[in-house]
Design a protein around this nucleic acid. Sequence first.
DNA 1: GCAAGCCTGACC
DNA 2: GGTCAGGCTTGC
Length: 289
Amino acid sequence: MPELPEVETVLRGLRGCVVNCRITAVEILHPAIIAGPCQRFREGIQGREIAGLERRGKALALRLRASDGDEAGYLLLRLGMTGQVVIANHDVALAPHTHVRLMLNGGPKEIRYRDVRRFGSLRYCTRQEMEQVFGALGPDALEMTEREFRGRLNGRKGAIKGWLLNQKYIAGLGNIYADEALFEARIHPSTPADRVSSAQTKKLFEAVRHVLQKAVALQGTSFRDYVDIDGRPGNYLPRLKAYQRDGEPCPRCGALIRRMIIGGRSSHFCPRCQRRPTRYKTLGGHSVP
DNA sequence: GCAAGCCTGACC
DNA sequence: GGTCAGGCTTGC
């Protein structure tokens, strides 16, 4: 599942091989993957050069430039659940579920977008539209300060797990790294956000950074589908301590990792290391010890 | 039937 | 405004 570390790995791969390339042909094999009219997409990106790459959370944007050097909007990529961006030679057979091909500099090199589940999308955006999309997201999880983290957590009543997954508060975490960060910080995923103590908040902030930085260094986690632009899987999978390890012993204390649905998402945690706070049940709005 | 990210809409 | 449920998709 592409979360921040996987998207960052894709960005770094693209930065090394598509910057200053011109998109000379656009082939859309599955129009439903394009957000908005296909014609606008085509006209927006065809003939443009890729001037640079930007990322906020899981959103990836290719900055475009016209032949005269003027800015020419963005190609916005969201990988959804199973989206893959790979560099391939034009004559190499298409992998199944390849939806878009962008030929570079007349070929043979091209960017291919593949997506089995088709939860992802490609979109042409003006700079204003792109800023709107990025602006709707919270700060990038690796850019945000502890002060911002605390400020955005403050007063939230829902489960901390749901808060971590909500991209408008903090951008970049998905189910894998949310569970891993909560495990590292020893916080039960169903703890109401406003019951996370100040000390725990600090631990959680540091755990989010630590887990994401480590995962970026290892080129992400390949649970099912994720691969980088050269088709290689990430190396973080063996480092997962809680995600999808229900029934296995906790690497810290040996208790069996449990799985439960919280906020509609499966959550994996150690019932011994990650205790629920005992005093948050409310009756008639009053705290009951 | 389940998993995921993200969008929409219902509800208070 | 927040919070939650539903729907999209398809290989396992």
